[in-house]
Structures are given as C-alpha cells and as structure tokens.
Simulated assay, not measured.
Amino acid sequence: MLNRRRFSAGLAAITAASLTSTRGMAAAPPKARNVVLVHGLFADGSCWSEVIARLQAAGLNATAVQNPLTTLPEAVASAQRVLARQDGPTVLVGHSFSGMIVTDAGVHPNVSALVYVAARAPDAGEDYTALAKKFPTPPASAGIIFDGDEGRLSEAAFLRDFAGDLPEAKAKVLYAVQEPFHKALLAGRTTHAAWRSKPSFYAVSTEDRTINPDLERFMAKRMGARTIEVKSSHLSLISHPDEITNLILEAAGQRG
C-alpha cells in the first residue's frame, strides 16, 4: 500500500511538473510576421490605427477585422475569414468584448499566439456575465443605451468611462464612429478556449472603468498569460500604443 501511495504521489508530481513545463512554453511563441486585430463594442477597426502604424514600422503585416457586432458566431466567422488569408504564423489580438472572438477563433491553425488588451477571456462555454458579477460593476455599464435591439454607449459615458485618458477632442471623434452592437451578441458563449493551448499575453488597464481591472487580472492569471499592467483607461491601444505594440511584438517572437 505504501509503495502504491509513493507511486501515485510521484506520478502526480511528474504530471504537475509536465503541466508547469508546458505552461512555461507560452513565454516563447514561434516567430510571426502577421497580426490580426479585432475591435470590441463601441468601436470599429480604426481604433487600432496607432498600433497598426507601429507594427508596420516594425515590418509586420497587420490587418484589422471589421467586427459585425451582430452575433458571436458571425463575429467569430468574420475573424476566421481574415485569419484564413494570412500566410504563416499569425498573432491574434483582441480588445474588450472581442476577447470572446479571440478565445473562440484563436484555435485556427494559423494562430501562433493570442494577445488580450483589457479584454474578456472566458473559458469554453462559460457564462461571462455571471463571471463578471463576481466583481464590482464598472461605471460604463450604466451608460449603455438601447434603441430597440441595438446598443451603444452614451456620449457622457464614452468620454468619462471608456476613453477617460484621451484628449476630449479625440475621444469625441471616436464616439462619432462607434459601431452599434446587437443584443444577441451579448448572449453568445464561446465553444473553444484557445488560451488553453496557445501562448497568451494580456494587457491589464489599471484605470479601466469599462471592465473591472481585478476581473482582467483574474482572467490573465487563470490563463497563465504573460501579463503587463498599463496605467490607462479601457482604450490603452490608443492612449498607450507603444506598450501595446511591444506586447504584440513579444507575442510575435520579435522581442524577448
């Protein structure tokens, strides 16, 4: 009996060491020359412009997906179509709600690594709303306005709670081009959790008023992501494009 217990304990230790070793491999993703970026709610593909310019200057091929914001399956399909056009390893990046898309579409064989920017990162089939309720509700939630089945963020909430660290004039331009989302989008659940098998990176926005920063930390820790913290509003990709670009370059194996 004692020998059997020792064998079981040894086997458990080997298994744990194996899992730890596999998790550690996430810090060294394969080199990638392609980056696909997906936007979330209250935005469109142009929100990645500052990051795209920096990625292009670094010699990478960057493409922003125009997320339809209709249903999760349709949003995932739009990202998959762009991923299918990439030639070789590709870093898939998502901001905010589009972390749902990255988590699901990230199992695509072209995807070499995942980057979450203040983004949702559910497990497969997880009820994200229920998960988020375990943390204090961020202020931006109260600013969502519905016109029938379409939702958007009020101007006051957009300027204060979504883009709070941007110059007001710039934030107003972003507000003017926000894409309404459909209620059905919020009901979707992921069918895959790509972060369980792909190297993952996460940028937490410490001043976030759209997703609770502690929820972001929880999701990043759960996935074992290489994590940075940026003193930023929800829109770190615009207010801190250098930090976000550097994290993407790391995920692309361009920096150690």
Rank of each mutant, 00 (worst) to 15 (best):
L185F: 05
K133L: 15
T190G: 14
V91E: 05
F7K: 14
R255P: 05
G94D: 01
G45R: 07
G40V: 12
Q80E: 15
S239M: 09
A156I: 12
A62W: 01
V230D: 00
T20I: 13
L83V: 09
A157N: 09
L69Q: 11
L2A: 15
S18V: 14
L249Q: 03
N3H: 09
E243C: 11
Y202C: 09
N34M: 06
L19R: 03
N110Q: 06
F7A: 15
N212W: 04
K31R: 11
V230P: 01
K134E: 14
Y116P: 12
A17E: 01
P109S: 15
E150K: 13
F181G: 01
F162N: 12
S49E: 08
L247M: 14
L69G: 09
E126R: 05
D147Y: 12
P199A: 04
R152E: 13
L60W: 03
E216H: 03
T70C: 02
A53W: 12
R81G: 02
V65Y: 09
M223I: 14
K221F: 06
E155F: 11
A64Y: 05
S236Q: 04
A13S: 11
F201M: 04
M219N: 05
K221H: 10
F218G: 05
G125F: 00
G40F: 07
R226V: 15
W195Y: 04
M219H: 02
Q66M: 15
V65R: 08
Q56R: 13
L159V: 07
D208E: 02
R196L: 13
L131T: 13
A184L: 10
R217T: 15
P180Y: 12
T206A: 13
L114G: 04
P167M: 02
R6L: 15
S200K: 09
R81T: 09
N212Y: 06
K221A: 14
P167H: 04
E150V: 08
A220F: 14
L131C: 11
E216N: 07
H39T: 09
G99D: 00
A57C: 10
A251F: 06
A225Q: 10
I244M: 10
V82R: 00
G164C: 12
L37P: 02
D123K: 14
P180C: 14
L247G: 12
V38T: 03
R33D: 14
L69E: 09
T22P: 00
I145M: 08
S141E: 10
S112G: 11
D127Q: 05
A169E: 13
A77Y: 01
G24C: 08
A184D: 12
F146T: 02
S200Q: 06
A62M: 04
L60V: 10
V102S: 08
A16C: 13
Y202N: 07
E243I: 10
S21C: 15
V91F: 04
L166I: 10
P68A: 12
L37D: 01
P136K: 07
